[in-house]
Amino acid sequence: MILELIVPGRGSFVSSVSPSYKGHRYPVEIISHCVWLYFRFPLSFRGVEELMLERGVIVSHETIRRWCLKFGQSYANALRRRRARLGDKWHLDEVFLTINGEQKYLWRAVDQDGNVLDVLVQNRRNKAAARRFFRKLLKKTRAVPRVVVTDKLRSYGAAHREVMPLVEHRSHKGLNNRAENSHQPTRQRERAMKGFRSVGGAQRFLAAFSGISPHFRPRRHLMTAAGHRAEMTVRFVIWEQITGAATMPAAA
């Protein structure tokens, strides 16, 4: 379904394609609300199930899990398409994850405004891993940054010289707080989920999570209470539009 929608405060028409809910007996409002709860708050599928039960909606945690797998990435991609133009200063960082007792690495890139550009879970943090992440970033964003900021891991410098040698590279621990701070929501979820079970599962969850969670986390410390409420109202409208809930007829 092709929709022509106006986003309040954005001032222009935006075309989007709503997901297909064909074959689902639950309405889109319930599906999108469950997905929102799971990716926005540190809740388990059973926790979401209990919250929905309190509201009189009987839905199993397994159904909620399938909804998150099916629609989470779709919603995240739609939100990314709706956000403002990305910045030209990229901050990259990697942090370790323990998956089934083995140490893996989560690579993350954000722009100067804190927008998550991409994430990638890998086994190593060597030159090959850095090169793979650089190439994935360029393909995903379809853009070339003006500046890349990293910590002093030498793998970044080696990969940078191969993949984007004409881009300025700043390597300094103190300059990369933006990327390091962006790991905090992931750490919170990792604790709530008691760790990830597999590399693939971690990649799937974090790819959707990094697209949905930041949408509902504006830079609150820079806003007044009234400004924050107004911004959140706009963001909830956008969520209804990209999930298709805004186009559903109201119940009688």
Score class of each variant (00 low, 15 high):
residue 120 L to S: 10
residue 120 L to E: 11
residue 121 V to F: 12
residue 121 V to L: 11
residue 121 V to R: 05
residue 122 Q to E: 09
residue 122 Q to H: 11
residue 124 R to S: 08
residue 124 R to K: 14
residue 124 R to W: 13
residue 125 R to W: 12
residue 126 N to Y: 14
residue 126 N to K: 11
residue 126 N to A: 06
residue 127 K to G: 00
residue 127 K to A: 08
residue 128 A to S: 13
residue 128 A to F: 14
residue 128 A to T: 11
residue 128 A to D: 14
residue 128 A to W: 15
residue 129 A to L: 14
residue 130 A to C: 12
residue 130 A to E: 05
residue 130 A to T: 02
residue 130 A to W: 11
residue 131 R to Q: 08
residue 132 R to V: 08
residue 132 R to K: 15
residue 132 R to T: 10
residue 133 F to V: 06
residue 133 F to M: 07
residue 133 F to S: 07
residue 133 F to D: 01
residue 134 F to S: 03
residue 136 K to N: 04
residue 136 K to C: 00
residue 136 K to H: 11
residue 137 L to M: 07
residue 138 L to R: 08
residue 138 L to K: 08
residue 139 K to W: 03
residue 139 K to T: 13
residue 139 K to Q: 10
residue 139 K to Y: 05
residue 140 K to T: 15
residue 140 K to L: 03
residue 141 T to K: 10
residue 142 R to V: 10
residue 142 R to H: 14
residue 142 R to F: 07
residue 143 A to C: 02
residue 143 A to V: 01
residue 144 V to R: 10
residue 145 P to V: 06
residue 145 P to F: 09
residue 145 P to Q: 01
residue 145 P to A: 03
residue 145 P to D: 05
residue 145 P to T: 01
residue 146 R to T: 13
residue 146 R to I: 12
residue 147 V to W: 12
residue 147 V to K: 05
residue 147 V to G: 01
residue 147 V to C: 01
residue 147 V to M: 03
residue 147 V to S: 00
residue 149 V to H: 03
residue 149 V to K: 04
residue 149 V to N: 04
residue 149 V to S: 03
residue 150 T to D: 06
residue 150 T to F: 06
residue 150 T to N: 03
residue 151 D to N: 13
residue 151 D to E: 11
residue 151 D to C: 13
residue 153 L to C: 12
residue 153 L to W: 06
residue 154 R to T: 06
residue 154 R to G: 13
residue 154 R to L: 13
residue 156 Y to S: 03
residue 156 Y to V: 08
residue 156 Y to W: 14
residue 157 G to R: 11
residue 158 A to T: 02
residue 158 A to M: 12
residue 158 A to H: 03
residue 158 A to N: 01
residue 159 A to D: 01
residue 159 A to K: 00
residue 160 H to W: 15
residue 160 H to G: 02
residue 161 R to E: 12
residue 161 R to K: 15
residue 162 E to C: 02
residue 162 E to Q: 11
residue 164 M to R: 02
residue 164 M to L: 15
residue 165 P to I: 15
residue 165 P to D: 07
residue 165 P to F: 15
residue 166 L to F: 14
residue 166 L to C: 07
residue 166 L to I: 09
